[in-house]
Design a protein around this nucleic acid. Structure first.
Length: 574
RNA sequence: CUCUCCGUAGCUCAGCUGGUAGAGCAAAUGACUCUUAAUCAUUGGGUCACAGGUUCGAAUCCUGUCGGGGAGACCA
């Protein structure tokens, strides 16, 4: 058995063995010296500059323009593309011209990784290029890259199939430089945040991903099992309760960039695993946290774009401080004209009906208010806006409002119609916290399968005393989407979650295996063309249809072999 | 989970009311020592996602399955 290869894949494998035969290792192991990157050369080289007489650079061949004994090619390294000029008599100074004629022209391809040494110059067309004196194959590429062409900033044949882009991100990154840039920006965003928080003296920590109880958010968890402890474990949906334990332990400020996991639906804002940054700072409240978020996010925009203004889709979003602030009730009143602040559950249900907000039986007061807000206000909030003072029912970990009964000291920042962070003055009264958990259990009994579970150890920690604390969770993926103007979470995750791919490699039987079953050798290739890849396939085939197919192929391919009779085909198929 | 669009060569896409598939790039062979979507000539390359059905005949029509996108439902 062997695997079926496309014509071009077979040609590249042949090139590979030919390279081996003439003594060129297609996968050498030595380091290759690199003196410059493409970007360095393009940025700094001037026709009269010195220091570019001997450069050494490595990368992937992206295009080739061969003109007989001279060629131009574009080399791509991690910083960009630079044109190479290759002359036969330069890389082959002796009689033997095979390095150019055979190795370069015939055995190398677009996608191969090479190292070159040469000098920098400017072509007659004015493009900074490298005149190659020495060429080394560093890695042979056996798969054909998608070919993307560009002229005058117009892209032709863009590699755009989302399925292949996400499944084979490596290809996406090779041929779509703007994709590589998105992920560079993502890392810069994280670094800016980390420097900002470390600079204030907060401690970056790590807490368990595998948790015996999931808590800190309302969501369905992924469940797994530990064999030697023989116990159920959950992948964390949040790390809130662990970070608060650390505040109890005496740290002033802790934060963690945490991969969290939620077993919910997927769409362009949700991936089952996603990243949050959670921050807890002792002796602060949510007012202080709002100012901190503003400052941090504004700095991110400045670090990434040099300005507070960021283009997102059709809109321009300005992260300049201060941001607008609405209480939740104000926001709803602002967009509907209805004041819900004094309504009870029944009145809220009426209002939902009036506003065409879909609800169900299991929803308590908190969820009803959230449903109204999510429908009428959230999608309309484009510029960064703080929404404050949420109902107590939907915020079981937030502290009761200092002056407004029934509310908690909580805020979310909404931007481009989506939540980007969630924060509160943390509840540190263990008696109140226990009661809130018990209310959640009550909701769970009503059918809310995302209500929180009671964490006794967390309550014990609170009983020792947690100082007044401000807490924050900020969605890194969504913030990255906004900061890099990407419409889908899949575009800011290297490897977004996908259903498994179908196996694409098809096993193919050798000629001998067919002949052993009594098939004449001259018909084996024809059978393969007809879709019969192994003798087993014959058993499943319809002899009449197969005869029809084979006769058609015989005619099409103009084969000089005797025609078939139905009896022959029937015997093959037995 | 529902609706909707899509799946054809390595890539980007054509393919009409059913008659065994075409183009550009890429590839092969040849020409060409400043090209840049290089150019010119010749050639090869397909399980038309998969499985059924209708039909003399299906890439095309019907049903189902798989995979993907979008919208909703759900989800702070």
């Amino acid at each position: 058995m062997e695997y079926e290869l496309s014509e071009q894949e077979q040609i590249r494998r042949n090139s590979l063995s030919e390279l081996n035969n003439i003594g060129i290792n297609p996968f050498p192991s030595e380091s290759y010296p690199i003196t410059h990157t493409a970007k360095e050369i393009l940025d700094t080289f001037k026709p009269d500059s010195t220091g570019f007489e001997e450069v050494s650079i490595a990368g992937r061949i992206m295009t080739r323009r061969i003109m007989g004994a001279a060629s131009f090619l574009d080399l791509q390294d991690s910083t960009g593309r630079i044109q190479l000029y290759l002359k036969r008599d330069d890389i082959c100074p002796d009689e033997d011209k095979s390095l150019y004629n055979t190795v370069f022209k015939r055995l190398m391809d677009i996608g191969d990784i090479i190292g070159i040494k040469g000098f920098v110059f400017v072509t007659q067309m004015g493009e900074t290029s490298i005149h190659v004196k020495e060429l080394t194959l560093l890695t042979k590429s056996l798969r054909v890259l998608p070919i993307v062409k560009e002229k005058d900033d117009q892209t032709f044949d863009a590699f755009s199939d989302p399925e292949i882009r996400y499944r084979q991100r490596y290809v996406d990154l090779i041929v779509n430089p703007e994709v590589r840039d998105v992920f560079v920006k993502r890392t810069r965003l994280v670094n800016t945040m980390r420097n900002f928080l470390s600079g204030k003296g907060y401690l970056e920590v790590e807490t368990p991903i595998l948790q015996p109880l999931y808590g800190g958010a309302a969501a369905r968890p992924f469940k797994t099992h530990h064999n030697s402890l023989d116990m159920t474990l959950y992948l964390r949906i949040a790390n809130e309760l662990y970070l608060k334990r650390l505040i109890v332990g005496g740290y002033d400020g802790v934060f963690e960039f945490s991969k969290d996991f939620r077993n919910e639906g997927m769409d362009r804002f949700h991936n089952p695993e996603f990243t949050q940054m959670e921050l807890y700072v002792a002796y602060k409240d949510y007012e202080w946290m709002m100012n901190t978020v503003e400052e941090m996010v504004e700095r991110i925009a400045l670090d990434l774009h040099g300005t507070t203004k960021v283009k997102v889709g059709e809109n321009e979003i300005d992260f300049k401080r201060p941001w607008k602030r609405y209480t939740m009730y104000e926001a709803i009143a602002h967009y509907t004209g209805i004041d819900i602040s004094a309504m009870d559950e029944a009145q809220l249900r009426d209002t939902c009906q009036k506003l065409n907000v879909e609800i169900d039986e299991s929803m308590g007061k908190g969820k009803l208010i959230d449903a109204i807000f999510g429908d009428v206000a959230e999608p309309k909030l484009m510029q960064p806006t703080f929404i404050t003072d949420y109902p107590v029912e939907m915020s079981p970990l937030a502290k009761k409002h200092r002056s407004k009964p029934g509310l908690v000291e909580r805020f979310e920042a909404i931007c481009n119609g989506k939540e980007i962070c969630n924060a509160f003055s943390e509840l540190n009264d263990p008696i109140d916290q226990r009661k809130r958990f018990e209310d959640q259990l009550e909701l769970g009994k009503r059918g809310d399968d995302e209500s929180m579970v009671l964490d006794e150890d967390f309550l014990r920690a609170l009983e020792y005393g947690m100082p007044p604390t401000a807490g924050l969770g900020i969605g890194i993926d969504r913030l990255t989407m906004i900061m890099t103007n990407q419409p889908s979470i899949q575009d800011v995750l290297f490897f977004p979650q996908m259903r498994p791919e179908k196996v694409t490699a098809i096993a193919v039987a050798t000629d001998e295996e067919f002949v052993a079953k009594g098939i004449p050798a001259e018909w084996v290739q024809v059978l393969r063309k007809a879709g019969i890849k192994s003798p087993e396939d014959l058993k499943a085939a319809n002899p009449n249809k197969l005869l029809h197919d084979l006769s058609g192929l015989r005619k099409k391919l103009k084969l000089e072999i005797p025609s078939l009779r139905i009896e022959d085909v029937k015997t093959w198929c037995e």
